[in-house]
Simulated scan of single mutants.
Amino acid sequence: MTIPEGEIPPRREPVFKAPWPSMTLVGALLGAYALQVFVLGEAAYQAFGFSPAGLETGGWPGLFTALFVHGNLAHVLMNTAGALAFGAPVARLLGVRGLGPVVFFAFFLVCGALANYGFARLHPGADVLLVGASGSVFGLIGAATRILAGRGGLAPVFAPRVLAMTAAWIGLNLVVGLLGASPGLDAGQAVAWEAHVFGFLAGLLLIGPAVWIARRGQGARA
């Protein structure tokens, strides 16, 4: 059958355009939460959460493992939504082949660990428990800030638009810190807004080296 010129139906766009590394990250966060709820239960918090007090006694693995433990369903859904929305442009920039995905996942982990570590340095020895991937998600937000300002590329850290968006994100976290509440947390839980700020700054600064490593890997592969 032939179709007259001008009557060719438009090509259907895929429903999901997110690159596979960001989708895989979402699946990992949701899968870890399912394991927490249906297998580990309340023991997951003490076993895998992060505590500044624990860091002083060798509990450094919690810097990473706490990223995959969440307070409730709303908490994990908020973080997965953020990981998908802001992780997609980061994954595209790093590339979906070669070293790109490896660098993407490492970037997520490092930003989250630095966010938790920054909180611990501000609150040394504090007997509180941090859980959730929000520090990592804010790392993705920091990276995406430079990507959006660069219109798909990487804008300089001190570009006016980057500075304006940075001020807005940090200001938002200061407001959240003053209010001390979040719709994604239950009563008795608080937002570690300081970790968000550290994660954001880590992502803002580390996305440059991450892109360099990813592209160097692609060049070696070629």
Rank of each mutant, 00 (worst) to 15 (best):
F16Y: 05
Q46T: 15
W212D: 14
G199Q: 12
V191E: 12
G41C: 00
A83P: 03
L55T: 06
P124R: 01
I170G: 07
S134T: 12
T57E: 10
G153T: 12
F16Q: 11
G54R: 05
L179Q: 12
G188R: 04
G199W: 09
G219K: 15
A143R: 01
L35W: 07
G87S: 10
A159E: 15
L185M: 05
A143H: 00
A144W: 07
G82Y: 11
I170R: 11
A210E: 08
A143F: 00
A143M: 03
T24Y: 10
R146E: 09
L206K: 07
G54C: 01
I141N: 09
F107T: 04
W20C: 01
A28G: 01
F16C: 12
G27W: 05
P14N: 00
G219Y: 13
M23S: 10
Y45W: 08
S134H: 10
R151I: 09
L114F: 12
V76C: 06
L25E: 05
G132K: 02
N72I: 00
L206N: 10
P156V: 11
L185F: 02
V110K: 05
S182W: 04
A18G: 10
V76S: 09
P21G: 01
S136V: 02
L67N: 15
Q218W: 08
E194W: 07
G171N: 08
A155H: 03
F50M: 04
L178K: 14
T2R: 14
S51Q: 03
P61F: 04
H123R: 06
P160G: 13
T2M: 14
L40T: 12
A113V: 09
A126W: 05
A143N: 00
F200T: 05
A81F: 10
R146Q: 06
G59V: 01
A44D: 02
P10A: 11
L77T: 14
V137R: 08
G184R: 04
A195I: 04
A187I: 13
Y45R: 01
L130F: 03
F158P: 10
P89S: 13
I141H: 11
A187Y: 08
T65K: 02
F107H: 07
L179H: 08
E13Y: 06
N79A: 06
F48N: 02
P89R: 10
A74Y: 08
A32W: 02
V26T: 13
L172N: 13
S51C: 03
V128N: 03
V197G: 03
L25C: 09
L29R: 00
V96W: 06
T24V: 15
R12A: 15
P10M: 12
A181Q: 15
L172V: 13
T2H: 14
A143I: 01
L109H: 11
G217A: 13
A192K: 01
L206M: 13
G219C: 11
A133N: 12
A195D: 07
A88V: 05
L30W: 09
A202S: 14
K17A: 14
P10S: 10
L122C: 07
L30C: 11
A149R: 04
V26G: 13
G87T: 13
G49F: 03
H75R: 07
A164T: 14
L114H: 08
L29E: 00
A120V: 00
W20T: 07
F108R: 02
G118V: 09
G54Q: 02
G59K: 00
I147H: 03
A222G: 14
A106W: 05
Y117I: 08
G199M: 11
